[in-house]
Design a binder for these strands. Structure first.
Lengths: 235, 235
DNA sequence: TGTACATCAGTGAACGCGCGTTCACTGATGTAC
DNA sequence: TGTACATCAGTGAACGCGCGTTCACTGATGTAC
């Protein structure tokens, strides 16, 4: 009443957060490319130019959404892994993979934003995006290495040897992340990522559910089968 | 000269084909959501309303592109399989999977059109799209069943048993396609699809190449390892 | 306690743009007689 | 062979729409004196 101009937001100081939330809602309704400043304004009861006070360009808003998404996915995986009571790596890896899927299913649009179709005119700033993209997998890297060193994980015979062209490229890529990471292990890790990623993608676009029905059970079955293959029988 | 109004198209009668080609080029440049009648017209040197003579709505054009894409992918896989000289299923399956990837890499936009982000306002006509979506996998279904029946493929112990909730759903889904397809085999088939799909998706969005370098070698290594796991040692 | 001023989030009009779709039309082509 | 007519692909103007971005502005708030 006393301040007629700011009815909706007067008591919620986190304006950038509200803008991002509205943008996510917009993407959910109209696809990742469906973000528009005017649409966000409409949803928040403000005019589009007001958003420029918080994000100088539309691209900055998208970048913020991407940063949030990577961090949220990484946080979700970390928290899930931390909640596992077992001391073995296997259960932690399974839990981490399930967390990856659960987050993707719960936030399909944010997942697409970071792993799916790029938004047409938008180019992500590599210096922000590239290091962040590794965060969700930090835990899995660590767990695979730990399981390998402890003997809990054994590289199956079917997976060796690693093709020379790949090993050669690993040698140039790996040092930037960590040293002494065995080629075969990295190969298995990428294989695992491709598997969970493929299942999630098929599920998100309704290709998996119609066939298997219980997509979570399928996901879990797949990871457990993979881990059974990797587990040392005497661990 | 004599017919100034139809300079560009006068000698090329396949107008719908040209329109689709221009639409594909548009998608390649501006993303799958970047199709526009005016843009297509611009590319072909005609006006946008002229397109209505061939496609009554923009959605019809998109549907035609989807139909083409499914058929092209299926044709590519079929042709590749047919070119395999071996009588064993393993090489045919490997070749089919490689064809899946090769087509996706050669036609990234069409691949996204059928397996990735849907175009915002567009809804695919299910009666056209659903049966077509199975076509690319007809050959793999057949090969898996054949290899299983001949003993070339053995379901690995790690993969059994199939979770009850999945088996229950298979029972309702399978009869529409074919009878007597073992649950465990269908489960493996979906696992295989998820794997190749995950690798392709990661490759298309530049997540795989930076790590492994030679993406085709990685893909092949992955499929071969999978098949080694599935192969009967005495086959 | 009161006054002058700076700050700054948000407004509303305006810009130029591209879009899908409609409509009456044009003009070349093919066909019937 | 010539004429009248139907066909039909394509035109160009117009419609109403939503968009990102700019700009001068308003008016409430906080601060310095």
């Amino acid at each position: 009443m006393a301040r007629p101009r700011r009815t909706a937001q007067i008591d919620s100081p986190n304006m950038p957060g509200q803008i991002k939330a509205a943008a996510r809602q917009q993407m959910a309704q109209h696809g990742t490319a469906g973000i528009s400043l005017r649409g966000i304004g409409r949803e928040l009861g403000i005019t589009a130019p007001a958003i420029y006070n918080y994000f100088p360009r539309l691209d900055d808003l998208i970048t913020a959404l991407i940063v949030d998404a990577f961090n949220a996915l990484a946080d979700a995986i970390e928290a899930t892994e931390a909640a596992v009571t077992s001391e073995m790596c296997g259960p932690k890896i399974l839990a981490s993979c399930l967390a990856y899927r659960a987050w993707a299913v719960a936030h399909p649009v944010d997942f697409q934003l970071i792993y799916g179709n790029p938004i047409p005119g938008y180019v992500a700033p590599a210096e922000v995006t590239v290091p962040l993209a590794r965060r969700p997998f930090d835990g899995l890297f660590r767990l695979f290495l730990e399981a390998y060193q402890s003997g809990e994980l054994v590289v199956p015979a079917e997976y060796t040897p690693v093709p020379a062209s790949i090993a050669a490229h690993f040698a140039t890529w790996l040092p930037t992340a960590s040293n002494n990471f065995p080629d075969a292990l990295l190969c298995l890790l990428m294989s695992g990522w491709a598997r969970i990623h493929g299942m999630v993608m098929l599920e998100l676009f309704e290709h998996l559910g119609p066939v298997v029905g219980d997509t979570e059970a399928f996901f879990r079955h797949e990871i457990e089968s993979f881990w059974r293959q990797l587990s040392s029988p005497d661990a």
